[in-house]
């Protein structure tokens, strides 16, 4: 099991555990203040303060409707909060369009996999690259300006595809991939952008156990290269297995946060979520029944 101390030796587990829940981290990559989003009077996300420690794998859990995906949408600019401010590496992200957020190094994936069906797998990967200046209209027809970079992008893409075990599909249309392969592709594509922070929305949803194991392996490897990982997850085994830190959400708020073993022992969490976690239909009711 990966430990934050192996990635960042100066941060001790003790120091992490000593930080008050919802509060300060030693070296936060992402800091969020006073974020509120309402949908027709319902507080979908209402977070006073949230920090993500650099170099860790952080899981966000909570019953359905807890606001996890909405939080992802807000942080990555896909949706706008009623109020709130957040910074990535000290740079303000609030009010930035999604593509600007991505260019600053925070790249997300989606709950329902978004493969670009009628592009080849290799083309899918190339779209993730941030270095191809031939993507600008005025250079598009001047082949010699982007040919060299195109070769480098392709080499990097093939290497990543190889690492993710789908290199043999490189020239197939992405729409022909299986569901699990699409999850792999989406993660590999996000890495093409060379992010500092990846936000994975339910990376293992609907994936068979063998592939889940491989996806987790990739997340660990990613983390070992210094990339911070935040992911939404329903499967507690996965959460316990891989995460350094767990944030529990319910009804748009942060219920508690802490190391996984501490969080699973928390009574509130058990009440609000874990007891019925495997039953998505009941999850929402559980959230409502327990006023936090």
């Amino acid at each position: 099991m990966s430990d934050v101390t192996t990635v960042r030796p100066e941060v001790t587990r003790a120091a992490l555990e000593a930080a008050p829940p919802g509060r300060l981290k030693d070296d936060p990559i992402l800091i969020t203040f006073g974020m509120l989003k309402t949908f027709g009077g319902i507080r979908a996300v209402d977070i006073d303060h949230l920090e993500i420690e650099r170099g860790t794998i952080t899981a966000i859990i909570g019953p359905n409707g807890a606001g996890k995906t909405t939080l992802f949408n807000l942080l990555t600019g896909f949706d706008r909060p009623d109020r709130g401010a957040w910074r990535l590496d000290g740079r303000r992200l609030d009010g930035r369009a999604p593509h600007r957020v991505a260019r600053l190094g925070m790249v997300r994936t989606f709950q329902l996999t978004k493969s670009l069906s009628r592009l080849t797998v290799l083309e899918n990967m190339a779209v993730g690259a941030q270095t191809q200046r031939g993507e600008r209209l005025e250079r598009a027809l001047l082949r010699w300006l982007w040919r060299g970079e195109e070769a480098r992008v392709e080499a990097r893409a093939r290497e990543l595809l190889d690492r993710f075990g789908i290199a043999h599909m490189a020239d197939e249309q992405a729409g022909t991939l299986s569901g699990g392969q699409r999850k792999l592709l989406e993660m590999a594509r996000a890495l093409m952008a060379e992010p500092h922070l990846v936000m994975l929305d339910e990376p293992t949803a609907g994936v068979n156990p063998a592939l889940t194991e491989s996806l987790l392996e990739h997340m660990r490897a990613l983390n070992a290269r210094g990339v911070t990982v935040v992911f939404v997850e329903h499967n507690m085994d996965v959460v316990m297995d891989i995460s350094d830190w767990v944030v529990v959400m319910a009804q748009g708020r942060i219920l508690t946060e802490g190391p996984p073993e501490q969080v699973v022992a928390n009574e509130e969490v058990i009440d609000a979520y874990l007891g019925r976690a495997r039953d998505p239909a009941g999850g929402g009711e559980a959230g409502e029944a327990n006023d936090v």
């Binding site: 593509h99 899918n124 779209v127 250079r139």
Partner: peptide
């Protein structure tokens, strides 16, 4: 010529799924 360039690749990608392309840093 445009469609076979990297510009065209992004444009075709947008046709497939705009949100995915936005999440990859393209305006």
């Amino acid at each position: 010529g445009l469609i076979r360039s990297p510009w065209g690749r992004v444009v075709r990608a947008i046709r497939e799924d705009e949100d995915a392309v936005r999440s990859l840093g393209k305006n």
